[in-house]
C-alpha cells in the first residue's frame, strides 16, 4: 500500500484528509507564521457542516461572529490579507445583518485554499519538515 506521506504529495485535499498530514502541515505553517490559514479553512468547513436545527441558530450566529472577528476583521491578519475586499465586505454584511448562511464563508475558504495550493502547499512538500518525515 502507498504510505500516507506519499499520498500527501498528490493534492492538498489528500494531505488535509489525513490526521498526521494535517499535524505536520500545521507545524510547518506555524513555523512560517501562517497557521491561521489552516485553522480558518477548517473553521469554514465546520461552520458549513453545522446542522440547521433551531437550537443551533444562536450558536451559528455566535460562531459566524467569532470566525469573522478572529480571521477577517483585522486587515493585517494573514487570512484577511489573502481574502479579496469584496469577499470580506460580503461576510461583514452577513454578520452585521445576521444573514447567517451555511455557505457564507465558502468564497473566502476557496480563496484561502487557492492560496495554499499555489503557495504554502508546494513549499511544504519541499520543506525540511516534510523531507525529514519521509
Amino acid at each position: 500500500p502507498t504510505p500516507p506521506y506519499l499520498k500527501w504529495a498528490e493534492s492538498l485535499h489528500s494531505l488535509l484528509d489525513d490526521q498526521d498530514g494535517i499535524h505536520l502541515f500545521r507545524t510547518f505553517l506555524k513555523q512560517e507564521e501562517c497557521g491561521d490559514l489552516l485553522d480558518f479553512w477548517f473553521a469554514c468547513s465546520g461552520f458549513r457542516k453545522l446542522e440547521a436545527n433551531e437550537g443551533n441558530e444562536e450558536k451559528k450566529v455566535k460562531l459566524a461572529k467569532a470566525i469573522y472577528k478572529k480571521y477577517i476583521l483585522d486587515n493585517n491578519g494573514i487570512v484577511s490579507r489573502q481574502i479579496k475586499p469584496a469577499t470580506k465586505s460580503f461576510i461583514k454584511d452577513c454578520v452585521m445583518k445576521l444573514h447567517i448562511d451555511p455557505a457564507m464563508f465558502d468564497q473566502a475558504q476557496t480563496e484561502i485554499q487557492t492560496m495554499m495550493e499555489d503557495n504554502t502547499y508546494p513549499l511544504f512538500l519541499k520543506s525540511d519538515i516534510y523531507l525529514e518525515y519521509t
Partner: peptide, 20 residues
Amino acid sequence: MDSEDDLLQKCITSAMPKQR
C-alpha cells in the same frame, strides 16, 4: 454556553478527519 474561542476550536476540530 461556550466562549467564542471554545466554540471556534470545536468547530475546527469537527471538520477534521477522525482517523485514517
